[in-house]
Design a binder for these strands. Sequence first.
DNA 1: CGTCAAATTGAAAGTCGTCAATTATCGTGG
DNA 2: CCACGATAATTGACGACTTTCAATTTGACG
Lengths: 230, 230
Amino acid sequence: MATVIDREYTAGHALGPSVRAFGKATSRLETGTAGIAGQVLNFARDSQIYVECDEVRSFYKVVSGVVRTCKFLSDGRRQIEGFHAACDIFGLELGDVHRLSAEAVSDCTVVAYRWRGLRRMTAQGDQIAPQIFGFAMQCLERTQQHALLLGRRSAAQRVAAFLLMTARRDGDQTGAYLAMRRQDIADYLGLTIETVSRTLSQFERDGLIALSSTRHVILHDLDALMVLND
Amino acid sequence: MATVIDREYTAGHALGPSVRAFGKATSRLETGTAGIAGQVLNFARDSQIYVECDEVRSFYKVVSGVVRTCKFLSDGRRQIEGFHAACDIFGLELGDVHRLSAEAVSDCTVVAYRWRGLRRMTAQGDQIAPQIFGFAMQCLERTQQHALLLGRRSAAQRVAAFLLMTARRDGDQTGAYLAMRRQDIADYLGLTIETVSRTLSQFERDGLIALSSTRHVILHDLDALMVLND
DNA sequence: CGTCAAATTGAAAGTCGTCAATTATCGTGG
DNA sequence: CCACGATAATTGACGACTTTCAATTTGACG
């Protein structure tokens, strides 16, 4: 386990789809000579993409599968900072060492874009920055949202928010596929695996959801789940 | 209360000190024609600098005093996302409306730098981006740290981390001046005011700290406080 | 010195974590 | 394809930590 299954190298996987939202300012990156070529990598479930303190060589975009970025605590516990699915960017750093680890939640494919920290990047031309800035800010917004969840929400609210987030990501508001294990969910929500499990069971008893399998959740009462949040 | 005491306008308060860390890449901003002029503003304690959903007109740098950025929940509770002291940047947004509110913890002076979202900014030239990117990433790192605190730490660990953070910010490792009220600390740490108070009292009984006044904390046993964390 | 807000302290309740046992699911090999 | 073992998930009982509610003390400011 925990091994890279293979690494394929391509010359022209330029930063694409997830970028459009920023409009004209980024188009140069997609078409111009300054476009960043990516390197396609495949990782097996539970393998490490990079670990804390690794030198920063790239940032990444998910093509398929799900990635978790996380931090390990001295007492053995783990905090998952975020899950990253198709088109999401992760691993962008200001400094030259990673402050988190990144691991494959499922078998997954990512594209690595050369990136060695702000200083060296800007030395070759500033053109890259606006787009990267957008990625950084999106990441910031998600993290702020996450901090709010961890700081001021009950277990039920956290699990509800997680289900809604997952359903939204799937583009399907009535069902969610949980690519990760219960322990991952717990470590993301700052709860224990037992509390996550109990909360899901309670939601099911209350008719808010149905667990058609461990990994597939049907959301029956979106309103009730949303009321639990802001 | 909650009013701006006065607003002074200056022509040349360019982005300065906190920027140097990024080296050459940013010097253009400080000296070149593209330098951003700031507007000096003063705010009275508890007044609002901007509120959630306000249109974004600027981002800010603290000159003196302390600012809190926070979010209000439907149940009346509040989560403070961060405290910002001299030289800190706050209020930088990707979109065109603020997602948090910013308020003066103490009487304070800030510099506002014109900023209306990524799109309009980059339209006038990309040169600004690398420096701003640095601000965004610093903000991200702090928020990630904060999320870790909220997700995986006990009340004692949170309060200890807060004291160490405050002492570090003051540049004095043996004492910390708490510019904010207990309620602010509680809302930052995701605790209640009573728990914060009790924890501080317990630290004092254990000889870890001394509360020379409500606002002044003397740190007697830095090691013990640090052991509580990572 | 008096008033009001802020901070502290106490007691009780509730939520979530811990530990343990059971059940379900997945992966592998027969 | 089924059986088995290992891993994951669920459930229950109990306990710890934090919150809630209430009362008291401290401190700031006129």
